[in-house]
């Protein structure tokens, strides 16, 4: 079953200096029980895409073109009422800004309970308490956290609280936006295992936005690679991470500091993201691409799509040599 379909989506932000092309003509699909990883350079539009799907964009953003179908419904068309009813219940999200997402003056437990009360008012007090405790255990937090205020938690405890909150209403689809950045490997591993169980046992579908390729390799079955608002490559984990086609994906993987070779310097990709306020000609990655040919600076490569795998590049034969 198709849970999400994003079709030629473009999202822009209005600023006084101009428009930021945050997401440009992005298309991909997510099926039930898929766990899709989204990777890409800082500022490439990953969070914007997530906010778009949840219809939570800030007021200076607008959908320029494209469609988003969530559970078969065009969310750009359905009334806000309906979205409000389902958001945080049928689908939810963990924000990258999770450390600032809760109210500082209310206890954690009260805030989680509120989320339950709004969407499942028919639950008994006992049942609510049981669910809250179950959620806390799932993210490895002691129950005392329910009594604490946000400022009394460590960064990683706060992130785990937000993961618990996002799952409290048993959603079918969740976007995790850099949700485990503050967690050590052991804690992170335990949480990823819990999410895996939800996927297997309860049919959860998820998107993991992360810069941590270790997380991607651990939990995702599909990977999307974004660069400057565009989708560069999309496919199965095996294809994209272990046999990447796009030069950007290759460069990104190459800069991964492999723990096994100590002493080696970590290298970035030379140059920086293009100015998002300017429109560009040709492929957005061309100025930083070691395979770029003349054509790359003139025309934009079309998306080549074979059996669900997508890549946008002119020089695939060169690159894969």
């Amino acid at each position: 079953m198709k849970i999400l379909k994003v079709d030629k989506l473009s999202i822009r932000y209005k600023l006084k200096e101009g428009e930021v092309q945050a997401v440009e003509n992005v298309s991909f699909e997510v099926n039930e029980r898929d766990v899709v990883g989204i990777v890409g350079e800082s500022g490439s539009g990953k969070s914007t895409l997530a906010y778009g799907i949840m219809k939570l964009l800030p007021s200076n953003a607008y959908f320029k073109n494209g469609r988003i179908y969530l559970f078969g419904k065009d969310i750009l068309k359905i009334p806000l009422e309906e979205i409000r009813k389902n958001r945080w219940k049928k689908y939810s999200m963990v924000f990258q800004k999770s450390m600032n997402a809760l109210s500082p003056v209310h206890r954690i437990g009260d805030q989680i309970k509120e989320a339950l009360t709004i969407h499942q008012p028919y639950l008994s007090q006992d049942e609510m308490k049981k669910r809250m405790e179950r959620a806390m255990r799932m993210v490895n937090l002691p129950l005392r956290v329910l009594k604490a205020y946000p400022h009394e938690l460590s960064g990683g405890m706060m992130q785990r609280t937000m993961i618990a909150l996002s799952l409290i209403n048993d959603p079918k689809f969740v976007i995790f936006d850099e949700a485990t950045t503050a967690l050590d490997v052991v804690t992170q591993g335990q949480i990823l295992d819990e999410v895996k169980k939800l996927v297997e046992n309860l049919g959860l579908t998820a998107i993991f936005i992360t810069h941590d390729i270790g997380v991607i390799a651990e939990i995702c079955n599909k990977v999307a690679v974004m660069y400057a608002g565009k989708l560069m490559e999309f496919g199965s984990l095996k294809e994209v991470i272990y046999h990447p086609l796009h030069p950007y994906t290759k460069a990104l993987l190459k800069s991964h500091p492999d723990f096994l070779k100590p002493g080696e310097e970590i290298k970035g990709i030379r140059g920086a993201l293009p100015d998002p306020l300017k429109s560009f000609r040709g492929c957005v990655f061309a100025p930083r691409c070691e395979f770029a040919s003349e054509m790359c600076f003139e025309r934009e490569p079309e998306e080549i799509s074979v059996e669900g795998r997508k890549v946008s590049c002119f020089n695939l034969s060169e690159v894969s040599k």
């Binding site: 890409g40 350079e41 810069h211 990104l252 800069s255 970590i266 970035g268």
Partner: peptide
């Protein structure tokens, strides 16, 4: 650098 991808992080 918790929110930075590997390439930006390296720089």
């Amino acid at each position: 650098v918790s929110m930075l991808d590997v390439s930006v992080r390296a720089d």
